[in-house]
Write a protein that binds this DNA or RNA. Structure first.
Lengths: 240, 240
DNA sequence: AAGTTCTGTTAACATTTGGTTAAACCCTCA
DNA sequence: TGAGGGTTTAACCAAATGTTAACAGAACTT
């Protein structure tokens, strides 16, 4: 497909470190835009189309988390990697529910960063071919249109779905009759995997079950500790 | 189609910088007209047919915003890129609601400018093939003539539409039964996407709904957080 | 069987987004 | 200069969405 360079937005206030990192990434065939602070970072973010953001957490005026939040508002998809001080604990980070794709403690091995970037890009790439562009599903007698966010039963009145309901059902449908791991939904939809997001997901499972219960051949089963399974009984290819 | 060079109007009062930029763009196969101030810029604008304007904001006598406004009066479509001082904040810029296609902080990377130009030209090109030249729509029993800006129901009395009403309904009609993203309308019609333009759009949606409510088979649905959808029920190809 | 962890469900709440109305604003043109 | 159409802004309310708490019940562990 496109062989053009991937664009990275690097927001790092330390000019030395920032420049070095930028050059290093550039050497590895990424097109890097370097912003010196959160403000500038956001401006640059809006003006271009990046494939990935690398944000320093500790920055004057606007820290990395705040910036990440603003970026998320504009773009739900874009991968974000945080550069953090070694001291910060996992839980502190999790507290900021921004949905990071990765954290890296400074100082870090540049090779590691490169690998992480590759991994994330890779994941996004395969994600999209496998997942996206697939907006419509037949689930028993249900029809899910996940672009317009509605669910119809037997061609009846469409039931509107909220974004989260929609995404969750779509993920289940993508794994129809198979395990849809909790973790998958949590990282993909909630972009975070902790107690609260997990409970939130359960709430959504309940909502979906309510919608689906008009068809007794369709149900969402729990696999304890693993995830959920959207099962469709009588899965005959109806040739009417 | 036309392989002829795109014409750019560059208005920049700094003679050195202006000349360098002009040459750089010329090297990249654009035909550049360089004006040294706002006054001259407007004169030149009127005398020729440009594909894009690049305006320095800070200029004596007539600043870039004022010039842009005059240009907009003459031409609603033409893309405008502003060159601004680094210091200016987003909000300051937003204040001047001229409808810029982009901002660039001076000093800037000339490559970036080039890419932006390409992107904008590209966008305009694809915009037009997809959208324009389509002025008439059947929407259920309604007929929209968006060139003459009126809407008739069942061949009855034509309802005059204001420019914004018209554009909005046209965009909805172009996406009939499908999602018309908020952002699309905002960038295309309002040339800006912020809280106020967004509220303004909602006001217009209300107006359109009022026009459309005489036909219960036609309605504008909201997809929360995404946009609107013009749905037409009983969409039977009427062969009467 | 008791204890722990995980899940189901409901309801309260906070937040964001949309709908509606009316007034303010801004042009243009007489 | 003031009347009128078009558009934006403000204000207020309603609807939609998402999170959290709380509690009950399953499922697993020991």
């Amino acid at each position: 497909m496109e062989t053009e360079e991937k664009k990275i937005l690097l927001v790092e206030d330390d000019p030395n470190f920032g420049t070095v990192l930028k050059d290093y990434l550039a050497m590895n065939d990424y097109e890097v835009t370097h912003a010196k602070n959160g403000m500038e970072g956001f401006e640059k973010f809006k003006k271009d189309d990046f494939d990935l953001c690398i944000l320093d957490v500790m920055m004057p005026y606007k820290d990395g988390f705040t910036l990440a939040k603003e970026i998320r508002d504009k773009n739900e998809e874009i991968p974000i990697i945080f550069l953090t001080a070694k001291a910060m604990k996992e839980d502190v980070l999790k507290g900021y529910k921004v949905g990071a794709d990765d954290y890296l403690n400074k100082p870090f091995d540049s090779e590691v960063l490169l690998m992480k970037i590759k991994a994330i890009m890779q994941r996004k790439a395969t994600d999209s071919v496998a997942d996206s562009k697939q907006f419509e599903f037949e689930i028993g007698k249900f029809h899910l249109n996940s672009k317009l966010r509605f669910l119809t039963y037997d061609n009846g009145e469409p039931q509107k779905l909220s974004p989260k309901e929609n995404e969750l059902l779509r993920l289940l449908a993508l794994h129809e009759n198979d395990l849809m791991p909790r973790e998958l939904a949590l990282t993909k939809i909630w972009r975070d995997d902790n107690y609260f997001t997990s409970r939130s997901m359960d709430v959504y499972i309940a909502k979906l079950r309510k919608y689906l219960k008009v068809d007794e051949n369709v149900e969402i089963l729990n696999i304890h500790g693993e995830g959920f399974r959207l099962v469709v009984k009588n899965e005959e290819k109806d040739e009417d």
